[in-house]
């Protein structure tokens, strides 16, 4: 039983607020990815949960134990540091064994768990080496193995795969997911990589300027962002937004209308792949400016009413630069945001 509960945690560095009244719950055995731009407070949050940083206010609970004022060792968690912190004076084996040795486990257990973690992260061949003789990606995997070896109930990971090549990252990701699910490890996983967050997480928490903007299942984060920021941050290309005005109980534009009780200016958000491309007369007029062939699809950049929009077309679509085509929106797949607050209505 090791859920993480964060209640109203704030962190001030001098005058700057790094975290503001942040609430977050990670259920027992759940995998939550923390996604957000650089400097939004992800590492700070992890360090406060781990007990490495003091908080300015709020509480941290692990299971139903208030650990807010406990030293790191007594919180019963493991962590992968953003800059690895692999001990240079110890071999890879001893690095991975470090936590187990501190727990005074017997040699046979240490040997078994170290080998297991090392196999999982494919660092078995380097066990006798010192970290100075490893590449950055290999060192990073040592850091992950060190955390997995102690079989923690709670695991905090700060961009643990950021230094691996795309293929290895894909492989490690799948391995991590299955191992952590099997062990029922409660995991909070910081990443910059959206596809990683999408693929790994039970839920994604999108963080922005010290607050969590939205926490939800990956598909909902993607298709139903709760704010302008989430829509613009998640997905590549990001969500498109059109400035419209709602009146008379509905929101309408060329070839599209949906009921809406809100009155006044709103933003209509939609994903580039959620539109049907039709004749110009039957939808929203879209003037194609740039065509980028991406292999699996074409990425079209153009303008609608002077606003920049990106949509996705099938790879064989017969589209040329300068053409105006129609975009047909699906009322079930759009989001409407308040122009003022940037929040979903």
């Amino acid at each position: 039983m090791a859920a993480i509960t964060i209640e109203g945690v704030s962190k001030r560095f001098g005058a700057a607020m790094a975290l503001e009244q942040l609430d977050l719950t990670v259920a027992d055995g759940e995998f939550v990815a923390l996604l957000g731009p650089s400097g939004c407070g992800k590492t700070t949050l992890l360090r406060i949960i781990a007990g490495l940083e003091t908080r300015s206010s709020g509480r941290v609970l692990i299971g139903d134990r208030d650990v807010s004022d406990l030293p790191p060792a007594q919180r019963g968690l493991a962590m992968v540091f953003q800059n690895y912190a692999v001990f240079p004076h110890l071999t890879v084996f001893e690095n991975v064994a470090f936590g187990l040795r501190m727990q005074k486990r017997d040699e046979a257990t240490i040997d078994r768990q170290v080998k297991r973690a090392a196999d999982l992260l494919q660092i078995g061949p380097y066990l006798d080496r010192y970290p100075a003789k490893l590449s950055g990606g290999q060192r990073q995997r040592v850091a992950v193995a060190r955390a997995l070896a102690v079989e923690p109930a709670v695991l905090l990971m700060d961009e643990p795969l950021s230094n691996l090549d795309a293929l290895l990252r894909l492989e490690m990701r799948a391995e991590l997911k299955s191992v952590l699910k099997e062990a029922g490890t409660t995991t909070l996983y910081v990443t910059h990589d959206q596809t990683e967050a999408m693929g790994l997480a039970d839920r994604i928490a999108v963080m922005h300027k010290g607050v969590i903007e939205q926490i939800d299942e990956p598909t909902r984060i993607y298709s139903k962002p709760s704010s302008l920021f989430v829509g613009g941050f998640v997905g590549s290309p990001p969500m498109n937004f059109l400035n419209l005005v709602a009146s008379g109980g509905s929101l309408a534009c060329d070839g599209f209308s949906m009921p809406l009780t809100h009155q006044g200016p709103v933003l209509l958000g939609f994903r580039g792949e959620d539109v049907a491309l039709v004749e110009a007369s039957r939808g929203v007029g879209f003037e194609v400016k740039v065509i980028e062939p991406m292999g699996s699809h074409l990425l079209l950049t153009g303008v609608v009413n002077g606003e920049r929009i990106r949509v996705v077309a099938p790879p064989q679509a017969d589209i040329a630069r300068g053409m105006t085509i129609g975009l047909q929106l699906d009322a079930a797949r759009v989001v409407v945001m308040d122009t003022q607050t940037g929040k979903a209505l």
Partner: peptide
């Protein structure tokens, strides 16, 4: 010595002496 090394030791349960 970057502070993360001491922090990693803390996290993995090292006593002050260790």
């Amino acid at each position: 010595i970057p502070k993360e090394f001491g922090e990693a030791a803390d996290i993995f349960g090292a006593s002050a002496w260790q």
